[in-house]
Design a protein around this nucleic acid. Sequence first.
DNA 1: TGCATCAGCTTGTACCAACAAGTTGAGCAA
DNA 2: TTGCTCAACTTGTTGGTACAAGCTGATGCA
Lengths: 257, 257
Amino acid sequence: MNKQPKYRQVADALRREIDSGVYPPGSRLPSEAELSGRFDASRNTVRSGLNMLVSEGLISSSQGLGYEVRKHEVFELNASRFENLTFPQNGDAYSTDVTNAGRHPTQTFRVEVTPATKYVAERLKVERESTAVLRFCHRFVDEVPWSTQATYYPDWLVKEAPRLAEPGDIAEGTTRYLAGIGVEQIGYFDEIAARMPTPDEARLLDIGAGVPVLLWTRTGYSADKVIRCTITTFRGDLNRMNYEIGTLSARQEDDPQ
Amino acid sequence: MNKQPKYRQVADALRREIDSGVYPPGSRLPSEAELSGRFDASRNTVRSGLNMLVSEGLISSSQGLGYEVRKHEVFELNASRFENLTFPQNGDAYSTDVTNAGRHPTQTFRVEVTPATKYVAERLKVERESTAVLRFCHRFVDEVPWSTQATYYPDWLVKEAPRLAEPGDIAEGTTRYLAGIGVEQIGYFDEIAARMPTPDEARLLDIGAGVPVLLWTRTGYSADKVIRCTITTFRGDLNRMNYEIGTLSARQEDDPQ
DNA sequence: TGCATCAGCTTGTACCAACAAGTTGAGCAA
DNA sequence: TTGCTCAACTTGTTGGTACAAGCTGATGCA
């Protein structure tokens, strides 16, 4: 007889019903008052149970509207193709991928000079607090905030490639621009982590409780130096990263889709 | 004058203090009663604020002990080396990596025959509900639950490689065993996602609120067929995945560490 | 018809009270 | 000294109340 607390029983019961399809994605749950009656619990207790499900990312709530079962449409990011070494396409990949999926991409962009954080300095192999150029992108899909991308370039590189510090877009892509002046990216190092968003990230990506962010750090290097560090934050509930490694084989061809 | 609700003011103030080092990782926060006095708020209001920080993964609480600022020691997983194509080393990589880090690895292991879930069936390219062999690993580092790893092998492959269904360990590693009978893995496809843990996952990995899981799905294929699907779940707060792509360059050599 | 208002629903915030249950250290007993 | 008990702390659970604030559809006025 291991008695669970009542608010947990509420959460478990509702979670089971959501999983089994009683409340399909997009549907509304009964109101707190109704659940309060059904489970013979106070409104506070029911709210505790609902809060668990919110923290798990299973449901979301809005004032005046009620609780809704979250939909999970996942967007695939092909990380190993994203920035092909021989045909660098940089940020363009985002626009093309999104457009191909029949969605509408928009983004805001800004450039600034900023001291490198500890995390960035370690990766760029420069002194902490030494300045770096930050090219920052805030991306949307169908007007929904999707990701933020911050690319840092070390000071010494900006001296060789001054256009990096200019506020405008670089039409041919930064990788190609750098290759043009003799700085060729020959490899990169990816780090992927997950955590709950900071309040800033939650605001920029418009995510509520229960949704983690996927952190993708790509450090690109030339034959002898680190030339950039890109930190991308994605909504964890809307994105999945893919890596294709090894011989491209029948796996692709016999895919019926 | 945008007045924030009181519980949010509590959370923001404490978050700022944690970030600025007033409460360093591992230290204890003042008790609910003390904070209640300091912020001139009821215990419930203070609890709401503290709960926010718990959901963000910044602090954790235990009955009788109080609230503690979470420590973040991250373990690096080198995914591109993990299963080298020419020198397959499979699960061994986990033991060696952990031992090299001066930690103590343990694991439990079991084998079962189970119907493939929709997710697994899609990746193995078999019928939904058709049986697969599941080799399941529950891994610990210094007695702390670290990850679970579930590898599924399709039915047709088990007919050719019967040892896959045997309960015991395969000493030389499954990749090598399969290569020995002519089924060579020539590539794989990785998918990485993040989400909040299910109650089952939270139990197996012993994670509380505010910690997401990192989901890593590796689908391995031979020249003409998919031969396995491995789903690994990690604690998001303790792990980071790395991919090294492109020419191995000076990046490694001039790394002082 | 068209528009504004408002009643009645929803969740959000904030307080109070009481008791359960886990942890620790002081202090007493063997 | 050793070991046990217990008081005094901590957070966890559950109940209650009241009002704020967002949303929707019905009502009624122009």
